[in-house]
Each structure stands twice: as C-alpha cells, then as structure tokens.
Design a protein around this nucleic acid. Structure first.
Lengths: 243, 243
DNA sequence: CGCTTTGTTGAACGGGTTCAATTCGCGTGG
DNA sequence: CCACGCGAATTGAACCCGTTCAACAAAGCG
C-alpha cells in the first residue's frame, strides 16, 4: 500500500503536511487488515474493547439502542476513520459499532498509537484534529436534530458526508456513492423511514439533489448550501493544507 | 483554596485517585481567577481563543446560532468544567460560550496544561476522562433529540445534570439548584419554551419532579430513571474510582 | 413603582408519525 | 429460466405531538 491508497494518510495529509517517514508510519500501521460482514456487530455496547481499527473500505455505523427498540445512529464512519478510538482509552464501548457494508479494517493496539504519537508530535496533532472534527460533526448533527426541519437535516447531512468523502477521494465534484438505506438515514436524522422517503422525493422534484440506487447527486450546489444553512468553512477544508 | 474547595479537583479525584502533589498542582492552576457577567458572550463563534478557563462558580452555556435566529444549546458547563478546552487546540472556537449566571473562572494557557500533563500522566488521564464523559453527554443528548419525546428528554436531562452536579458536591440526594430558564431548557432540548412549561407542569402533576424557583427536586427517583430510560451506569460514577 | 424578563395557559395549526397497502429490486432454489 | 421470497422503496390517509400565536400573570430589578 502507498500513502495514496490509504484513506487515512490522505485525510491526515490534508490536515498537516506529513513527511515521507510519517506517511510510511501511517501506512505501516495498516498492515494488519481483516474484513467483516455487513450487519454483524463489531462492538457491542458495554463490551470491553482492547484495540481499535482504522477503516479501510466500506461504511460503518455507530449507534445507540433505546429501551423501546428505537435506534439512534450517532455517526457513520467512512474509509480513513477510526473505529473505537475512544474505547481504547476506556474499558468499555458506550455504543454499538456495526458495518453498513462489508468492510475491511486494520487493527492496531493502544501501544502502536502511543508510539506513533511519541515519534511524531505532528502526527499526533493530525490525529487529534481528525478526531476533533468528527466530534464537531456530531455537534452539528445535534443542532440539526434540535433546530432544523426534515428537509434541512437531509440536505445538511448529505452535504457533510460529501465533504468527508471528498477528503479521502471518494466523491467527485457533484456526486458520491452512498450505501445507506432510507432506514439508516431515518435513524441518523431522527425521522421515520416513511418521511425520509417523502423528503427525498421532494428534494428530487425541487431539482436540488437525487439519492437513488446508492448514489447521491447534487443538482444545485449553491441552492443546497443556502437552504441547508451549511457552514461554508467545511467546504474550504482542502485549503487547510498548509504546505 | 484547598482541594475540597476546588470543583475540578473533586471531579478529577472521582475519576482517578490523585496524590497530594497532583491535587496541589490542580489547585495551583486555578489561582488566576476572574469573573464574568451573565449574558455577555465569553467567546464568539469564529473568534480566536488563545487560552481556556476552568469554571469555578456559576453556570455557562455553549450554543450555536442558526441563520433563522434559532439557537441550539450544545451543552451547559458547571463548576469544575473546562471552558474552551477544544479551542485551545485549534485556532478558533466553533461555538458561542455565554455565562448563564455571573461566573468566576480561572484562566490558563495551553502551556500550563501541557506542563501538567507532562509532570503527571495520571492527571492527563483524569482530564481526558473528564473531557470524554462530557462528549458522551453530548452524544446522549443527540439520542434524546433524535428518539425521545419531550417528557423523556426533560427527565433525562435533569437526571444527567444531577449526576454531574453530584460529582462536584453541588447536589444533594434528591435536589439541586438550577439557574436555567425555561428558554434555556427549550433551546437545549429542541423544544419550544411553551412546551417546556407544559411538560414541567405535567411532571409536577405526575409527582415525578418539581422545577420551581431555580430548584429541581426529584420526588420519585426509581420511576424517573425508568421513564427516562436513564443509564444507571451514570449513577455509579462514584464507584469508578480506580486507584 | 413601572418595566422587562420569565412563567403560564388556551386555541388553532402543521410537520412528522403511524398504519397499511403496494411496488420494486434482486438473490435463490426449483 | 422463472417463480418465489424478502428487504427496501413508495404512496395514501388518519392521527398526534409539539409549535405558533396571543394574552395575561408573576417575579425580579433599577
């Protein structure tokens, strides 16, 4: 694997310029690959988790279950994201982690990460930055659930996914492949699957975006960004690259 | 100030057993006290923030504004919590920070914190743990906004506040003082102030809890925990104490 | 003591849910 | 190759939780 094949290296490289040595360190951390089937819980809430993973391929969801059987998806992970980074620090996971598709991920131990941090503070900064922007995305979702209507939530969410996928080279100018079902969207956005369907139809009819057969396509970017009240700072991520 | 007077020392001490030296280090970090008036923005979104604070007294809210004028409160901070810890790492704050009451807080620089971390890894662990459980609380609120109805949200939120206040000695067995207005509750829980009022009346009439004149009182703890689907693990925080 | 903020209550409205039925896509086995 | 089965998508209709608008009471404060 070369740094260009590694979504994580691409992402970290977008935050901080990394040296050859740092890049190869990152790549080297990903040699222990393994694959998991869609739907099979990777981590079960309350279960101890001694190690974490770097997601290489496929999509994952992190969610919490409620007594009544309801489900709230907290976040999705895409290639280059960490799985269970928090759980490494603590004894047990505080939510479920389940692949949305078949995935491949590389395992690493707490010690590996700490060693990497020790050898390169800049690498540590990049990882922290990445973790921090994942947290910011969760906060942005909180804002959506609290104060945005269904249509705004959907647009905002699909735009946010686009910026994240872009960072690892998995989206082009106006579209990306997205394996999420309408049930996934519903459980992430705090809506019913039925209403997700209606909203998607509405957005399609308004010629704003299309989500069909696993592919999201934006038809009017400017209108979407405005209607969703999407923070344009996200769009400038690529300009973070400090050479 | 002694460790017992310091909410932060109390909280960290609940996570990890700290030595005399570590405790005094924590106390020493809080010598640079200053006070702020209620309502005056401490940090404005997008504004650079070179240093952070430890909240000593009073309550603070962190929130995001929406284009339409709506507000979503992301979290409240109580004594012992950090203000703008994240903003220290990054250049700019990603949300507003505003005192709910008149507060006193002690300033510290990024370097102070890093020095503390270097001198005591256990202190670092405790701080990270504390930051991490704040994040977990935000996730729990996300779940509330996505999948719980107004009554459950309210109960869950007031119970969560209780556990946090307990940790710093600001709540007794069944009650605590709470300076939040119904507007604050509304903006934190994604409800309208009118509906917050109705829900509080309902909870009072059902003899579950009372929130009047700045004081929250629980009347039936067991029923509340069940109705709110509140994770009892939170209640066992005091038992976390690992040496 | 008036003024502003906060709390309280009623009535009408509406976004989103729920229930139910139908269709579509697709892998599987006869 | 086609029928079957099953999960996902789609659509309609009734309902309901929470909002909005509006008015008023209470409490805090200079």
């Amino acid at each position: 694997m070369t740094p260009l094949d590694s979504p994580l290296a691409r992402k970290l490289g977008a935050y901080v310029i990394l040296t050859e040595a740092e890049l190869s360190y990152v790549v080297q951390m990903q040699h222990h690959q393994r694959s998991f089937e869609a739907g099979a819980d990777l981590v079960h809430e309350g279960q101890p988790m001694p190690c974490a993973y770097i997601l290489e391929e496929g999509w994952v969801s992190s969610y919490k279950m409620l007594r009544g059987g309801g489900r709230q998806i907290v976040d999705f992970q895409i290639p280059g994201d960490f799985l269970g980074l928090r759980s490494v620090l603590f004894r047990t996971a505080d939510h479920h982690i389940e692949p949305v598709t078949r995935i491949t991920a590389s395992k690493f131990a707490k010690a590996d990460l700490l060693a990497a941090f020790k050898s390169s503070p800049r690498l540590a900064t990049a990882v922290l930055w990445s973790a921090s922007s994942a947290e910011a995305a969760v906060v942005e979702r909180l804002v959506s659930l609290g104060r945005r209507d269904a249509s705004e939530r959907m647009m905002h969410f699909l735009l946010e996914l686009w910026t994240r996928l872009r960072l690892v080279g998995l989206a082009d100018e106006t579209s990306y492949n997205c394996p999420l079902s309408q049930y996934h969207l519903a459980d992430a956005l705090g809506l019913s699957a039925v209403h997700v369907n209606r909203i998607l139809r509405q957005l399609r009819e308004e010629n704003l975006l299309t989500f069909r057969k696993g592919k999201v396509t934006f038809h009017n970017f400017a209108a979407l960004v405005t209607a969703a009240d999407f923070d344009k700072a996200y769009l400038d991520y690529e300009q973070i690259v400090v050479q």
